[in-house]
């Protein structure tokens, strides 16, 4: 496979053809924040946290879906990117109700980790304090829309890996919600096999195992990639 060489933050990097900037960066231990990206499912470039600057391009590019090009000059950590990322994280905290102190994911949450990574000590925007539902109709799992960041990782893992497409998104803009089946309560969603993959995939405290209490929702997200790899390579 042809190799590509390019630079990230002045560091010379070699990557395989077709690799994305994110993959290449990770292989070389360069941190680029991500939220909607999940190993094992398709990338959608939606959260915009992985945006990087590419010399000669006016637009910022999402590292998770941008393939490496020979001699590309990439910057991942400029002042502008740092400020934008922090604003994006702040917007997420302001959009729904994140009360880490009483959240099942406290301490094991990708959103919380990102807030720390971008240096968010407080949110400069006004909180929206929307009224959101919690659905615990499923015998094993629950979804708390107060914590959902609409990354669609649940949607993709359920569709692409479990193959049943229980999850989808309904509504537009701030009213958008992940839904199960045709917006039935999860417990009545006939397609759900209760496989638990969405529980593994969710980056926040939105999807949880029932009975989990504050800070108890730990999960091994590598399992998704492991399952996919196992299937594709027929171990």
């Amino acid at each position: 496979m042809a190799a590509r060489t390019f630079t990230i933050n002045d560091q010379l990097i070699s990557a395989r053809e077709g690799e994305t900037i994110l993959q290449a960066a990770r292989e070389h231990g360069i941190f680029i924040p991500t939220l909607c990206y999940l190993d094992g499912v398709s990338a959608v470039g939606a959260c915009r946290l992985c945006l990087v600057e590419i010399e000669g391009s006016r637009m910022l590019r999402p590292a998770c879906v941008t393939p490496v090009v020979e001699e590309m000059v990439v910057r991942t950590d400029t002042e502008r990117l740092r400020e934008y990322r922090r604003m994006i994280i702040e917007l997420l905290f302001a959009e729904r109700n994140h009360i880490c102190a009483v959240c099942v994911a406290n301490g094991h949450c990708e959103l919380q980790d990102l807030a720390i990574a971008v240096g968010m000590d407080h949110v400069r925007f006004d909180y929206a304090f929307p009224r959101c539902d919690v659905d615990i109709s499923h015998p094993l799992f629950g979804i708390d829309h107060n914590r959902c960041v609409l990354c669609t990782r649940c949607v993709r893992v359920c569709d692409e890996v479990e193959g049943v497409h229980t999850w989808d998104v309904a509504g537009r803009g701030a009213d958008a919600r992940v839904i199960t089946d045709m917006r039935q309560p999860w417990g009545e969603a006939r397609t759900c096999t209760s496989c638990g993959k969405c529980v593994l995939a969710c980056p926040t405290g939105a999807i949880f195992r029932r009975g989990a209490t504050v800070g108890e929702m730990e999960r091994d997200r590598n399992k998704i990639a492991y399952i996919v790899a196992a299937r594709e390579q027929r171990w």
Binding site: H98, I99, A101, Y127
Partner: peptide
């Protein structure tokens, strides 16, 4: 100094806001 989550975000005290 905003001291603790309630001072910084509203936190548990603000749980009533959506209601």
């Amino acid at each position: 100094v905003a001291f603790g989550d309630c001072a910084v975000t509203g936190n548990v005290t603000a749980l009533r806001n959506p209601l």
